[in-house]
């Protein structure tokens, strides 16, 4: 025994004992009985996302400015009564083809007023948003939500949800009537009062009512027929842009950078090979 200790060394012996102790604790834990895992019954009714093809998809995709304008029309007429797009400012709409006059029209009619101070009297007042102000929703609180559950900000929504744009599109077009089976088999899953059944929403029950109700809910200025599916696609495209306005630019520069790096790396491989060959 003493011989073994001598062979293995004192430090290693201490470590060995510590290691064995750790292993024993883990082993003990691994053999603890587990509570029977309940499979969340809601998961059975959750549906996989619908597929959505946007013009900006892929490495060479481009935003369709007309579609983004239509999307903003839907956002303004439908979403904006509850949601904001806080990370956008009114002047950013110029990027999807709105003129300065149009932007002024939009901001003057916007639902939110901005707290400010009258420069002459010093009194607090609520003014119209400037071009430089955020496109906020009615529940906007500059200090964050502070625990009040409100409609989430939409400007980053396609980045902030798993599934991205396809999730938004599926959710918008995914309202269904609750399957009869649910009431029979899982009464606890019954949609609560004031909520709505949507199999694309985690937990199946969403507080948002059906937003895109009927055809021609909005008037498209470019004459496109405003079917609910078209509106959902357009507003999703707009939200995808609002989350990643740099996308086109990023891809364009990226292709150039990768091409440059391929040439540079290729050249460095040749140089490296020539240098080592001389050994």
């Amino acid at each position: 025994m003493l011989n073994l200790v001598r062979r293995i060394g004192f430090i290693r012996l201490v470590c060995l004992l510590a290691g064995l102790a750790m292993c024993f604790v883990l082993l003990w834990g691994a053999f603890q009985p587990r509570a029977k895992q309940e499979i969340d019954p809601a998961a059975r009714y959750q549906k996989p996302l619908k597929s959505l093809k946007l013009p900006s998809d892929g490495l060479t995709g481009h935003f369709d400015k007309k579609q983004l304008r239509r999307g903003f029309t839907v956002f303004q007429a439908v979403c904006a009564s509850c949601h904001g797009a806080n990370q956008l400012r009114f002047q950013d709409l110029a990027e999807i083809g709105y003129s300065k006059a149009e932007i002024d029209g939009i901001r003057q009619e916007w639902i939110n007023r901005i707290p400010d101070v009258d420069p002459n009297t010093g009194e607090a007042l609520m003014r119209q948003p400037n071009r430089n102000d955020r496109i906020t929703g009615p529940y906007y609180n500059p200090l964050g939500s502070q625990g009040i559950v409100t409609a989430p900000d939409l400007s980053l929504i396609t980045k902030a949800r798993k599934g991205g744009a396809a999730y938004v599109y599926s959710l918008l077009t995914g309202y269904e009537s609750e399957p009869k089976e649910i009431a029979e088999r899982y009464p606890q899953l019954k949609t609560p009062e004031g909520n709505f059944y949507n199999p694309y929403f985690k937990g199946l029950h969403i507080a948002m009512p059906v937003a895109l109700l009927s055809e021609n809910q909005v008037n498209y200025e470019d004459g496109t027929k405003a079917s609910t599916d078209q509106m959902a696609k357009d507003v999703t495209a707009f939200l995808a842009w609002s989350a990643e306005p740099e996308l086109e630019n990023r891809h364009r520069i990226g292709i150039g950078v990768i091409a440059f790096l391929l040439v540079a790396t290729g050249l460095s491989v040749v140089c490296c090979y020539r240098i080592w060959r001389k050994l």
Binding site: V257, F260, A264, L267, V270
Partner: peptide
């Protein structure tokens, strides 16, 4: 030529 090109392109990369 190759080495000059390699150094040159690396310089371009850094400037870029």
């Amino acid at each position: 030529f190759l080495n000059v090109a390699a150094v040159g392109i690396a310089g371009m990369g850094v400037c870029g």
